[in-house]
Amino acid sequence: MRILRSMLSFYSSFAFAGFLLTAACLGTLYTTGIAMFTFLFWIKVGTMWIIYYFVDHNKRKEYYYYDNLGISKRVLWIPALAFDFLVFIVSTIVLMLKMNGSQTGG
């Protein structure tokens, strides 16, 4: 429970930026079409790396807090980035299915 709460606290500090970028990618995909997916995929990967770089730098002192609770940097980052990317993938698939459905229906 303590570990989960710490992971959520850590993720919440940059979740908004991740969601915002996912929303921007989805918006672009919706207006330009599926052909842009590969480009947006790499944009998402690149922005995740940028978020990691800045958050890692800004929170380097706070890692000592989590270390003192037995929670490593890896335990904080891997689930957070995996969840952020999963949200991107799932929402992209849902959007693609809807776009496909509306084209077929029309």
């Binding site: 500090s13 706070e62 000592y64 807090y65 270390d67 003192n68 037995g70």
Partner: peptide
């Protein structure tokens, strides 16, 4: 943490 706890010289708690 059952072995060591460490207070760094700077503020470390969010």
């Amino acid at each position: 943490p059952q072995l060591f706890r460490y207070l760094p010289q700077f503020n470390f708690i969010p």
